[in-house]
């Protein structure tokens, strides 16, 4: 598979999903949001998950982010079976292994940047001095060293998203899961955020980008297309025109 995809993973497997499905009961009807998805993500990959709405993109993202568990199938995160974890175990995985970046930033409005970034450290049980040190460090890394005592409403959209990224990074997660990270930003600010993600990737982070915008997905080194709950394509690089026949494209 690796040779056919021409993907050269730089590290061990972080996410290993095999044939997972997810069904939702909506009233009388059962909706099959995922119909059997198999996917492997390695350390220090930069992968975009694309697909139109209703493709199961969000469901897959929730699954990858350990916010939800699959109806069937196998999901191993760093070799640990996530599918059978209870709520608190999942919370611990989210806390330590996954850094979430949301479209709407989801910062706590009445807390300063510093307190927002400290939050995952509190849930991880880190002592106050180290929390302060680490949060300040990460905020400085994303270029907000002079904004640590500002509240979200005193920051621009781009700065808010930087705080959110700092918060996602603060526990040193195995993956950064960014859901439409530029969706609420103008294109220039969006580019800045994408540059920051690029920078993180260069520094060795694993980044999973969920988006429906092609020029955003173009930043990734690998793209997974979802349609109707199945992976339609999984290929290296980005293909601007999907109907263009490209040798490396693999249908699953």
């Amino acid at each position: 598979m690796e040779t056919r995809n021409s993907i050269r993973p730089r590290g061990p497997v972080v996410i290993d999903i095999e044939n997972i499905t997810k069904d939702y009961v909506m009233g009388e009807e059962v909706v099959h949001a995922l119909r059997g998805v198999t996917l492997q993500i390695h350390r220090n990959e930069y992968i975009a998950i694309m697909g139109p709405s209703g493709s199961g993109k969000s469901t897959l993202m929730n699954m990858l982010g350990c916010l939800d568990t699959p109806t069937s199938g196998r999901y191993e995160f760093n070799g640990k079976n996530v599918a059978e974890m209870d709520d608190d175990e999942l919370a611990a995985v989210r806390n330590r292994e996954i850094g979430f970046v949301f479209q709407t930033f989801n910062l706590l409005p009445r807390s300063t940047s510093l307190r927002n970034v400290e939050l995952p450290l509190i849930y991880a049980g880190i002592e106050p001095e180290r929390r302060l040190e680490r949060a300040t460090q990460v905020l400085t890394d994303v270029g907000l060293g002079d904004r640590i005592h500002h509240k979200p409403n005193e920051l621009s959209g781009g700065q808010r998203q930087r705080v959110a990224i700092a918060r996602a990074l603060v526990n040193g997660p195995s993956i950064v899961l960014a859901d439409e990270p530029t969706g609420n930003l103008d294109s220039k600010t969006g580019e800045e955020i994408m540059d920051l993600l690029e920078h993180l990737y260069e520094r060795g982070n694993t980044i999973i980008l969920v988006t429906h915008e092609r020029d955003i997905a173009a930043h990734a080194r690998r793209t997974v297309h979802l349609r109707d709950g199945l992976i339609e394509m999984d290929h290296a690089g980005f293909i601007p025109e999907l109907d263009l026949p490209i040798a490396e494209i693999t249908s699953t």
């Binding site: 982010g65 916010l67 608190d88 919370a91 611990a92 989210r94 806390n95 989801n106 939050l119 995952p120």
Partner: peptide
């Protein structure tokens, strides 16, 4: 929801 995503337990 955000707190839970960041690792808050029940």
């Amino acid at each position: 929801g955000t707190r839970k995503a960041l690792g808050a337990r029940r």
